[in-house]
Design a protein around this nucleic acid. Structure first.
Ligand SMILES: [Mn+2]
Ligand SMILES: [Mn+2]
Ligand SMILES: [Mn+2]
Ligand SMILES: [Mn+2]
Lengths: 221, 221
DNA sequence: TTATTTTTTTAGATTAATCTAAAAAATAAA
DNA sequence: TTTATTTTTTAGATTAATCTAAAAAAATAA
């Protein structure tokens, strides 16, 4: 089980995984280069190696997809990343905007018993501090259906359950506005002029957020 | 503060540190090669790089010592290693013979806030699961005076507080015999024939251990 | 459908970490 | 104090990951 790959190979696999679960399942060289902060030429080199190890399906000039083995490896890294994030927030008291970079390193520690014990210690959380689902030990992801605030209509209400933008500035803004996971919201008005949205947060006084902000907050109805 | 060095450089620094706190403060190439499971030629290469970075004092053919910067770096890695070991045992329920290899990886995660928060979360432990002292955040080590069971005399008693052999077989043996940290012992007899030792553990029935075992158990009087 | 632009791959180098084999220095033995 | 042994260093290669610049292929536009 769980062949061990280099730190670097793991980062490429994760990048391909995230890119392929977005829109298209086929991922191109330049996208990977951007996500891994490398150059296209370096990506091509690595793609050959990953293909060699049967972790991706790769045909020159045609982009890549993950094989089952590659997807397993990637999901496992995502699982570790998100569990560590829960640990950092729940046990060590980090803020939700501070944990990503540390988890980026911790996700490469390879020990199945470590991660399964951590999972139990954290009481098998379903989601990380940003609302992203944590794959279970078999690799299955139970993703709840969430919609963007920007897709809600007047008087509709729900619970904030995720974000689609993870930058520290964005997360800090939400924190300051009380728009954190678990907050109950209700759309009181959608402003015609620019689409900004007024909403009630936990039944308190109205707050207004821009459409851009609204697009990046995910709600469970 | 705390310049960041490569994973590999950190392992060399730690090896030099452990070797130099043993007997001689000057450490030689072959010792390092043995401890890092590399070859002498590789060590020489790395020594040049570490000297370049002013982490060691190195003169060809004369062995090495750590500079203050090098010692700081090494002690910090040891601090991280031991704190993670405490975490693995106390929070995740690993046995004391299972944690070394995982800590060997975790010790390279570089985040000062992470390690200080972990320290607090664990309630600032003084020692790791093997009784080794944990350097505080300033790098100071408070080492208690311990003696080997093999240096004790008849009727002397004390508390098991450390081990000087960390292999899994040895630790499992101690576990099985109830000779774990905190156990109270009293020497009932030192056998003339081969120097093996009979002792009372927590006032229970006598157990006998070989001189070799006795040399590797450390006791606080 | 040809020309232009964009994307991707190859060619050729570089850097870090490692190795084996050979040379040089230091140490121990005769 | 020579000679032999051990230790350490150098020389020369290798592997993984990366880069820049140039070539090749694919996609887009004219
Ligand atoms: Mn996250
Ligand atoms: Mn250890
Ligand atoms: Mn290590
Ligand atoms: Mn230890």
């Amino acid at each position: 089980m769980s062949n061990t790959h280099s730190f670097t190979a793991e980062n490429y696999l994760k990048a391909i995984y995230h890119l392929s679960t977005g829109n298209n399942s086929v991922v191109n060289t330049n996208q990977i280069a951007e996500m891994t902060s490398t150059k296209a030429a370096s990506v091509t080199d690595m793609l050959k190696k990953l293909a060699e190890k049967k972790l991706i399906n790769y045909i020159k000039y045609q982009g890549v997809t993950l094989t089952d083995a590659g997807k397993n490896a990637a999901v496992n890294i995502v699982r570790k990343h998100r569990l560590w994030e829960v640990f950092l927030v729940e046990k060590l008291g980090f803020k939700w905007d501070e944990v990503h970079d540390i988890a980026e390193e911790l996700e490469h520690i390879n020990s199945e018993s470590l991660i399964n014990r951590l999972d139990d210690f954290l009481e098998n959380p379903a989601a990380d501090p940003h609302g992203d689902p944590i794959p279970d030990r078999s690799g299955t992801i139970h993703q709840k259906k969430l919609i963007k605030i920007s897709d809600m209509h007047q008087n509709q209400s729900g619970i904030i359950s995720g974000v689609s933008e993870h930058s520290s500035v964005f997360l800090k803004l939400l924190e300051k506005m009380g728009l954190t996971l678990g907050a109950k919201i209700r759309i009181s008005e959608i402003i015609e002029f620019d689409g900004s949205i007024m909403l009630l947060v936990n039944d308190h006084a109205d707050k207004t957020i821009s459409r851009e902000v609204a697009k990046n907050i995910l709600v469970m109805l």
